[in-house]
Amino acid sequence: MGRKKVDAAAVSLTSLRAARLYRLLTLLGPGPQTRGFLLRRLKLDVRGFYRDLEALRTLDIKVTTTSDEARYALAGELDDALAKLPFPDPGLNVRDALELAKGSTAAHRKLKQRVNSFLNGPRGGPNKPR
């Protein structure tokens, strides 16, 4: 049975966990690292480490191990992995989001689409309280 692909935007991470996953990815970006090194740098126990690896798998970010499982490595490019890691809710208000969506880059367009979807509701009209 294949793994179900998950939209990164649909995965909710706390700010602390998202920051830790980011640090894990940046530690793995340059090349393979031992589990002990990663545990020390991330200040994690083994159980937390494996939970974070599972969270990355859920986001379709692959981390591989060497044949003797002594080292962990990021499969693919760091930039590709970071593109799949969701950013936690920054606590913006609607006015802030509208201001940030004014640019013309792909990121601006993505934000503008999400803001418009939020403001227009599921049926295309203004979102009104029920």
Rank of each mutant, 00 (worst) to 15 (best):
L56F: 07
F87T: 15
L56W: 09
L100E: 04
V63N: 09
P90Y: 11
L98G: 01
N93L: 09
A73M: 10
P88H: 09
I61F: 03
G76S: 09
D96T: 00
N93C: 12
L92F: 12
G91Y: 03
L74T: 06
L92D: 07
T66Y: 03
D79N: 05
L56Y: 07
R71V: 02
K62C: 08
D96N: 06
R57K: 13
D89K: 00
V94D: 06
L56Q: 12
L59E: 04
K84S: 14
Y72E: 04
L98Y: 00
E99Q: 08
A75C: 12
A70R: 11
T64P: 00
A75N: 11
P90A: 11
E99T: 15
E99F: 14
R57G: 10
A81L: 07
K62E: 15
E99H: 12
T65M: 11
G76F: 06
L78S: 06
L98F: 04
N93R: 13
T66Q: 11
T65K: 11
A55P: 01
G91S: 05
L59A: 05
D80N: 06
D89M: 02
P86I: 00
E77D: 13
T66N: 15
E77W: 06
R71N: 05
L100Y: 13
L56G: 10
P86K: 03
V63Y: 09
L56C: 14
L78V: 10
A75M: 09
A81W: 05
G91D: 01
A81Y: 08
E99M: 13
G91M: 03
L98Q: 14
P90D: 08
G76E: 08
A75P: 01
L85G: 07
P88T: 04
A55M: 13
A97C: 08
D68V: 00
E77M: 06
L82I: 08
R95W: 07
G76K: 07
P86V: 02
P88F: 03
L100I: 03
A55V: 14
T64K: 08
P90G: 13
L98T: 00
T65A: 13
V63D: 14
A75Y: 09
L100W: 11
L56A: 08
L82V: 04
A55R: 13
T65F: 05
G76V: 07
V94K: 08
D80E: 15
T58V: 11
R57C: 03
K84M: 14
P88R: 04
P90N: 11
D80M: 03
R95T: 09
E99Y: 14
A75S: 12
A97R: 02
V63A: 06
A81F: 11
D60C: 03
L98C: 12
L98D: 01
D60P: 03
L78E: 12
D79M: 07
L85I: 11
P88D: 09
L98I: 15
V63W: 11
G91E: 01
T65N: 03
G76H: 07
L82T: 05
G76Q: 07
F87A: 15
A75W: 12
A97E: 02
P86L: 01
I61A: 02
R95V: 14
T65L: 08
D60Q: 13
T58A: 08
P88S: 12
L85N: 11
D89R: 04
T66P: 02
L82Y: 02
E69R: 14
S67C: 03
L100R: 14
L74A: 05
E99V: 13
R95S: 10
I61M: 03
L92H: 06
R71H: 15
L74H: 12
L85A: 09
D79T: 12
V94N: 05
